[in-house]
Amino acid sequence: MAFDLRISTGSSTPIFRQIIDQVRLAVATARLKEGDALASVRALAEQLVVNPNTVAKAYAELARDGVIATHQGKGVFIAARRPIYTSAERLRRLEPALDDLVREAIALGFSTDDVQKLVQTHFRKMAGRKDGES
């Protein structure tokens, strides 16, 4: 499996948050698909050399958000994608990233068209979707 979690110390992002972010990104970019297995809490803790409680905390949040599902005795799997947020909530979650993107684009002198094209390219590359449709 081409999914390799990496954490870094000395960041203002806590380690449990880094794990959550990376699993979410891997799911979003289809590097992790429904049914793919993740390492157990203990195995991942040993692999990353972090406290198992930290991994458990990350998995608990991912499970609560419907990203992963734990099957007793079988392990941790990527769950079927289902919309668990309202459209308003989805928008609220996307807003900060949009702010960053647009701020940088303006500062660096990109036009709206430039940004749209770039977003489309990235969508194709990451999510394997065309033209930014969902």
């Binding site: 110390t9 000395g10 380690i15 809490v41 203990r42 803790a45 040993e46 990353l48 050399v49 972090v50 406290n51 198992p52 409680n53 458990a56």
Partner: peptide, 30 residues
């Protein structure tokens, strides 16, 4: 760190350790 995580982590075992290594603290401390 590997030994501490392997032998102690995630269970009922309690650890109190003093250290100056912030990276280690980030990795293993609750």
């Amino acid at each position: 760190l590997e030994v501490i995580i392997n032998v102690c982590g995630g269970g009922d075992r309690t650890i109190l350790l003093s250290t100056h290594e912030m990276q280690d603290v980030e990795r293993i401390a609750d």
